[in-house]
């Protein structure tokens, strides 16, 4: 018995494989919950409970916003072959840019657009460094972007504990609250800062169009699928790679602007600005299979897992980080399913 490449897997088989692996993952997770003294079915009920009430839905929407922006950009970057694992750092740089514009530049009706502009630019710059290092010196971008995450983390820690520490915050490590003009409007009493949500939807749809309906998108796809063909066509590999990297960095930066301008209204410690959105969004991007538009589905799904993790924490005092276990196992299961679906079992040697 061995695995062989299946050139044309049928839809039914693909779906069945995914379903089988999903069940396997859920069973594994259920075992984990049971070990923890929580009945698995009840745990799944709690995990899905946010879907049942409006407040839960609003929470999902709030978590979806950064995942959508970052996920759309990462889908593009991964497709082109730039493995940006540094969205978390780019998000933090975006938050830094937003805070600078909000606190230190003259306030006015232009403040919010300026925050997005500066935050996006800084996020793009942060990814651009890794792109430049890869194109110019051949530095592995997985490792450089990972290292830049730590650097961004320490930059924010330094700023909120040092030069930008608020005058009115006593012992806390954050800046003063942003002025009124630097706060994003929200939907009713929820934390859904809708302008950023619109940006996210626009980014996903825009990148989808760009990728599949324009010459630029064609070049990107060729580069991602067949770099040697791209060189044969005379494409400037480095330029297209850098452009995709910049776009994904800028979108992560915008996500950072949204978090500080829409939710916290100040710059604070990195772990409070982001719940690891930059890493969770890697899943959103991977699940979207190279189609930025599909992030419109995958980002809310992961948003649900994040909010469900919160609910589990409240209901059974499980640590919030259980969401990473859920996400990690899910990803592993889907990776396995995806690979297996492309193969068939052959019953001979």
């Amino acid at each position: 018995m061995r695995l062989e490449l299946d050139p044309a897997p049928s839809l039914g088989k693909t779906l069945l494989t995914y379903l089988a692996f999903l069940l396997l993952t859920l069973l594994l997770l259920g075992g984990l919950f049971a070990l923890y003294g929580v009945p698995p079915l009840r745990a799944y009920g709690v995990l899905l409970s946010p879907l049942a009430d409006p407040l839960g839905l609003a929470e999902i929407a709030r978590r979806t916003i950064p995942l959508l922006l970052i996920g759309a950009g990462l889908t593009l970057a991964f497709r082109v072959g730039f493995f940006n694992i540094g969205a978390e750092g780019q998000l933090l740089l975006g938050a830094v840019g937003a805070a600078y514009a909000a606190l230190f530049l003259p306030a006015g009706p232009w403040t919010l657009p300026l925050m997005f502009l500066l935050g996006g630019a800084l996020g793009g710059l942060w990814a651009g460094v890794a792109a430049w290092l890869r194109v110019r010196f051949g530095a592995n971008e997985i490792l450089t972007t990972l290292m830049q995450n730590y650097l961004a983390y320490y930059l924010v820690v330094y700023l909120v504990a040092g030069p930008w520490k608020g005058q009115f915050v006593f012992g806390f490590l954050y800046t003063d609250r942003f002025p009124e003009v630097a706060r994003l409007p929200r939907l009713g009493d929820t934390l859904v800062h809708w302008p950023t949500l619109l940006l996210g939807v626009g980014a996903a749809l825009g990148l989808q169009l760009l990728l599949f309906r324009t010459p630029l998108g064609f070049s990107w796809r060729v580069l991602g699928e067949n770099p040697s063909a791209a060189r044969y066509l005379g494409l400037k590999e480095g330029r297209f790679l850098a452009l995709a990297a910049l776009a994904s960095g800028a979108l992560s930066g915008l996500a950072g602007v949204g978090e500080v301008a829409g939710i916290h209204q100040r710059l604070l410690e990195p772990a409070q600005i982001s719940l690891g959105y930059g890493f969770t969004a890697i899943l959103a991007a991977w699940l979207a299979r190279g189609r930025p538009g599909l992030v419109l589905l995958t980002a809310p799904l992961l948003g649900l897992i994040l909010v469900g993790g919160d609910a589990l924490k409240l209901a059974y005092s499980m640590p919030f980080r259980v969401v990473d276990v859920v996400a990690g196992l899910l990803l592993l299961g889907l990776v396995g399913a995806e690979a297996l679906a492309r193969h068939r079992l052959v019953w001979r040697r």
């Binding site: 984990l32 070990l35 923890y36 493995f83 694992i85 997985i142 690891g276 890493f279 890697i282 899943l283 991977w286 005092s317 499980m318 640590p319 919030f320 980080r321 259980v322 969401v323 990473d324 276990v325 859920v326 996400a327 990690g328 196992l329 990803l331 592993l332 990776v335 396995g336 995806e338 690979a339 297996l340 193969h343």
Partner: peptide, 26 residues
């Protein structure tokens, strides 16, 4: 399963972020 090695590694790193807090709380 010939899956993407970066994605598989990322999944395991995510697990390593989450699993310790479960074990420690337990």
């Amino acid at each position: 399963y010939r899956a993407d090695q970066i994605i598989s590694g990322t999944a395991l790193n995510l697990l390593a972020l989450g699993a310790p807090s479960l074990v420690l709380t337990y």
